[in-house]
């Protein structure tokens, strides 16, 4: 059984005209354990919506999402939160570090809602991404590259089954982007996490053996129904 299985997924958003637009229409998508998959998608192709649905942050209008044996649509919201806390790691384009928290605390929060906070492991993770000496720095005191490293450390802090990455290098220059990608993949390999990355950057996509086009997966994108 695949780690992630999406079937007949439909997601609509209200349109400005008062109707609805279909943003996602995914007949099928599956990712196996430890698999690294890159989805190519242009801006507005429903990338973020897809990742949010996989993470249980958004609910599809129809279809099913099965993650690590859990059918999300059949679970209560708090159980979905639990599945997310235990199985999902998330790296955002804008990093989404919590501003009032140090690098170490950000990583601690990455594991807080799963197995609980483990300061030693959080410090090891920061060491692993090369910023152990910045553990007590606030995000505002870190460079963009350092912030992304914290975000990666936080994303794998809960030893996720699946790491979702939404344009994870969008704010980095080419060199830093490659470093971040390497780090991301290494970190996921260490914890055995699969990766579902979405990007429009060919350089990023080129780093993945398994590449798919979101336009192939999402029928809504093909027919131009995305808002």
């Amino acid at each position: 059984m695949a780690l992630l299985e999406l079937r007949d997924l439909i997601k609509r958003y209200p349109s400005p005209e008062g109707g609805t637009n279909v943003v996602l229409d995914v007949p099928e998508l599956s990712i196996g354990d430890g698999e690294h998959v890159a989805l190519e998608g242009a801006s507005g192709s429903g990338k973020t919506t897809l990742l949010h649905i996989v993470a249980g942050i958004l609910t599809p209008d129809s279809g099913s999402v099965s993650l690590a044996g859990h059918e999300l649509s059949s679970l209560s919201e708090s159980k979905v939160d639990r599945v997310r806390a235990e199985h999902i790691g998330y790296v955002f384009q804008t990093f989404n570090l919590l501003q009032g928290y140090t690098a170490l605390e950000n990583v601690l929060l990455g594991m807080a809602f799963g197995d609980g906070q483990d300061t030693r492991r959080a410090q090891d993770l920061l060491d692993r991404v090369g910023i152990a000496d910045k553990a007590n720095h606030l995000p505002g005191q870190l460079s963009v590259g350092q912030q992304q490293r914290v975000a990666i450390a936080r994303a794998v802090a809960n030893r996720p089954s699946l790491l979702l990455a939404d344009e994870p290098t969008g704010n980095l220059d080419a060199d830093m982007a490659q470093q971040a990608l390497t780090l991301l993949r290494e970190a996921c390999e260490e914890v055995g996490a699969a990766i579902l990355l979405v990007s429009h950057d060919p350089a990023v996509l080129g780093a993945f053996d398994e590449r798919r086009s979101l336009a192939d997966i999402n029928r809504a994108a093909r027919v131009g129904g995305v808002s």
Binding site: E77, R84, I88, N96, L98, A112, F113
Partner: peptide
Amino acid sequence: RREFAILRALGARRST
């Protein structure tokens, strides 16, 4: 709200 949204994305429940 952004802080809460990030926390929720990390797995925090509404009750948390």
